[in-house]
Deep mutational scan, measured.
Amino acid sequence: DTLHVTQDGKHIELRGLSEEEIKLVEELLRRGRKVEEALKIIEELRK
C-alpha cells in the first residue's frame, strides 16, 4: 500500500508498506517522529 505524508512542507509518498506498517508509521508521526526515523524503524522491524 501507499501512504501519503506531508512533512516540513514536503509531500512524501511511501510505497510498498503493509497495512500494519502504515499504521505504525502513522502512529510514529503522530508522536512527533520524522518520516526518515519512522522508515528506519520499519526497516529494522523487517529484518
Rank of each mutant, 00 (worst) to 15 (best):
D1G: 15
D1T: 07
D1C: 06
D1V: 05
D1N: 14
D1F: 06
D1R: 04
D1I: 07
D1H: 15
D1Q: 09
T2W: 08
T2I: 13
T2V: 14
T2Y: 10
T2K: 09
T2F: 09
T2M: 08
L3G: 08
L3W: 03
L3A: 08
L3Q: 07
L3D: 07
H4N: 07
H4K: 05
H4P: 07
H4I: 15
H4D: 08
H4V: 15
H4R: 05
H4M: 09
H4G: 07
H4T: 12
H4S: 08
V5R: 01
V5D: 05
V5N: 06
V5E: 05
V5K: 03
V5A: 04
V5P: 05
T6M: 14
T6A: 07
T6Y: 10
T6R: 02
T6F: 13
T6L: 14
T6W: 15
Q7H: 07
Q7M: 04
Q7A: 06
Q7R: 01
Q7G: 07
D8T: 03
D8Q: 03
D8C: 03
D8Y: 00
D8G: 07
D8R: 01
G9F: 02
G9T: 02
G9I: 04
G9S: 03
K10F: 10
K10P: 06
K10G: 06
K10C: 06
K10T: 11
H11Q: 08
H11G: 06
H11S: 07
H11C: 04
H11K: 08
H11A: 07
H11L: 13
H11R: 07
H11F: 12
H11T: 14
I12H: 14
I12K: 04
I12C: 06
I12D: 05
I12Q: 05
E13I: 14
E13D: 10
E13V: 13
E13Y: 11
E13H: 09
E13K: 04
E13N: 07
E13F: 13
E13W: 12
L14S: 03
L14I: 15
L14K: 03
L14W: 03
L14F: 05
R15C: 04
R15W: 15
R15T: 13
R15N: 11
R15Q: 11
R15S: 12
R15G: 10
G16K: 03
G16Q: 06
G16N: 09
G16H: 09
G16C: 06
G16E: 09
G16M: 02
G16D: 12
L17M: 07
L17Y: 10
L17T: 01
L17N: 00
L17R: 00
L17Q: 00
L17A: 03
L17S: 00
S18M: 06
S18K: 06
S18I: 04
S18A: 08
S18Y: 06
S18Q: 06
E19C: 10
E19R: 13
E19W: 13
E19D: 12
E20H: 11
E20S: 12
E20V: 12
E20R: 10
E20M: 13
E20K: 12
E20Q: 10
E20D: 13
E21A: 02
E21C: 02
E21T: 02
E21L: 03
E21M: 03
E21V: 02
E21S: 01
E21Y: 03
E21D: 03
E21G: 01
I22W: 09
I22F: 09
I22D: 02
K23A: 14
K23Y: 11
K23Q: 12
K23W: 11
K23C: 06
K23H: 11
L24A: 05
L24I: 13
L24W: 09
L24E: 04
L24V: 10
L24P: 00
L24Q: 06
V25M: 08
V25P: 00
V25E: 00
V25W: 04
V25F: 09
V25T: 04
E26M: 15
E26Y: 15
E26Q: 15
E26C: 15
E26H: 15
E26V: 15
E27R: 14
E27A: 15
E27Y: 15
E27P: 01
E27D: 13
E27T: 15
E27H: 13
E27I: 14
L28N: 02
L28V: 06
L28C: 01
L28E: 03
L28D: 00
L29R: 02
L29Y: 03
L29E: 00
L29T: 03
L29I: 11
L29G: 00
L29K: 01
L29P: 00
R30L: 13
R30T: 05
R30I: 05
R30S: 10
R30G: 07
R30Q: 08
R30N: 06
R30Y: 12
R31C: 05
R31V: 09
R31A: 13
R31I: 11
R31Y: 13
G32D: 03
G32T: 01
G32A: 02
G32Q: 02
G32M: 04
R33S: 11
R33E: 06
R33F: 15
R33V: 14
R33K: 11
R33D: 05
K34S: 13
K34Y: 11
K34I: 07
K34D: 08
K34P: 11
K34G: 10
K34R: 14
V35N: 01
V35G: 02
V35E: 03
V35P: 06
V35R: 01
E36Y: 15
E36K: 09
E36H: 12
E36M: 13
E36W: 15
E36R: 09
E36F: 15
E36D: 11
E36N: 09
E36V: 10
E37K: 04
E37L: 07
E37M: 08
A38L: 13
A38H: 00
A38V: 15
L39N: 02
L39C: 02
L39K: 05
L39H: 02
L39I: 13
L39M: 13
L39V: 11
L39S: 02
K40F: 13
K40W: 14
K40S: 11
K40T: 12
K40G: 09
I41M: 12
I41Y: 12
I41A: 10
I41E: 09
I41T: 08
I41N: 04
I41C: 04
I42A: 01
I42L: 09
I42Y: 01
I42V: 11
I42F: 02
I42G: 00
I42R: 00
E43T: 07
E43S: 08
E43N: 09
E43L: 12
E43I: 06
E43R: 08
E44V: 10
E44M: 11
L45P: 00
L45C: 03
L45E: 05
L45N: 08
R46D: 01
R46F: 04
R46N: 04
R46L: 03
K47Y: 13
K47P: 05
K47A: 14
K47R: 12
